[in-house]
Design a protein around this nucleic acid. Structure first.
Lengths: 235, 235
DNA sequence: GCGACGTTTCGGCCCCGACCGAAACGTCTG
DNA sequence: CAGACGTTTCGGTCGGGGCCGAAACGTCGC
């Protein structure tokens, strides 16, 4: 029986993702925030009991992790490998037709700048990674950390990172830009620092983020990064 | 048609992949070769009629493309985005237990060097991309083509590429190495050139490839690339 | 043209899993 | 402690999808 090679059980994982309710949940969690079960039930348009079933399967498969906070249970994507596969599936899926102006502006906003699980993606994520590479903060090819100083200037506490088993840096391919951007622990810390400093802010309930006026000024001053669209709309 | 990343229908694609038979087929096609329907039926251990059903669904979903050759129909993965998602799913799947020595040596061989859809992956793919970057053939970060000469030395007809809509180069993250390697049209042409020149050869029926003795000598001479394990076994 | 072979279509069986409501469980509040 | 709320567990129903065999279709060889 040849062809046993490489026969990792793709289907078992894909089957877990291959359900409308669970797919909606995963897509919602791509925003990077941890959401309680009831919220995910609402997103997936199923009853709380059904959602509980689905979430159990997602966690059993190792796709989602849970934290208990009082009587709530917050769910998030397990790691960025999961996020990347979900992003890939989203790109493979037939483009859904836009039904309203509000949805359209939301999608252009997402293309411009969005959070992917726990780091920055979209045109902004790519531009940031490019600029940090130009500045010598990131290694040429593998996006390894070369110089921590620019990150510190962004408010990232670089020294406290790198202890876990998670890769410090990681090149994550962006599906709309077809260019790599920064993921891994450092990518996550950078997104968090930018959110904390108010240089970028989440827009609505989705994955889209936007550069704030102070952020526009700060990114210019600290990194020399310009031509960032504060307002969405310029594809 | 604006592309809506937020709520793209992940589940519809994942459901197509989330069936044992179809998953086996996709895994088999990761080897990069086009396979006829009967062969895929054998791989998936289903009847020809069932396999036909599955293949129809895979092609409808845009995951697999078909070419007719006489009374055979050869199926291959549609593009490298599909291949990358399938690779990601395989990495997410629980490690399958190895049942025989033969399987184990096959899997170590795959980790050392393998074809992923139509380009080179594994440790060899990463080493090659690294070396080509060092030589200035590839751009620092995005793995863009910077100098075609080293590719020509490998037997790649660079001039004939770049006409289609497929990206000429593309950074593809390798799941076992956690490092990028070269995909895209140039990656595919490079694998093909190395196979044509006999510098690497497919091992058995799976995805594993191996550097041949002439290839070892040639890669050293042309690229200064050393420390390649001709025989598998050194993880 | 005829048979062999690869592939697809069709009909029918069967089982898995998605769904819900009711009820139990755990946690915070008054 | 009682009641509200978020969440999970349990039974039971139901539809969709995976499976196969038989037969049709298309292609190749003689």
């Amino acid at each position: 029986m040849p062809y046993m090679a490489g026969d990792a059980d793709i289907a078992s994982v894909a089957a877990v993702m291959g359900n409308p309710a669970r797919g909606s949940m995963l897509a919602a969690l791509l925003g990077g925030r941890a959401l309680p079960a009831g919220e995910l039930a609402r997103v997936a348009r199923v009853s709380p009991s059904t959602a509980s079933d689905h979430l159990a399967r997602l966690t059993d498969a190792g796709l989602v992790s849970v934290e208990r906070f009082g009587r709530h249970r917050y769910h998030r994507l397990a790691d960025d490998r999961v996020a990347q596969v979900v992003e890939g599936l989203a790109a493979l899926a037939p483009a859904r037709r836009v039904r309203s102006l509000r949805e359209d502006s939301q999608s252009t906003a997402e293309r411009a700048a969005r959070s992917c699980y726990d780091h920055l993606a979209g045109a902004l994520g790519v531009a940031l990674a490019d600029r940090l590479t130009e500045l010598g903060a990131l290694d040429d090819q593998s996006l390894g950390l070369a110089d921590p100083e620019p990150f510190r200037a962004l408010g990232v506490d670089v020294a406290s990172l790198g202890s876990g088993r998670r890769p410090l840096t990681r090149s994550c391919l962006d599906w709309s830009e077809r260019r790599p951007h920064l993921a891994g622990e450092l990518g996550a810390a950078t997104l968090q620092a930018l959110l904390d400093s108010g240089w970028i802010a989440r827009r609505g309930h989705g994955r889209a983020v936007a550069v704030t006026p102070p952020g526009r000024e700060g990114l210019h001053r600290v990194l020399g990064l310009d031509a960032l669209s504060v307002a969405p709309g310029c594809g």
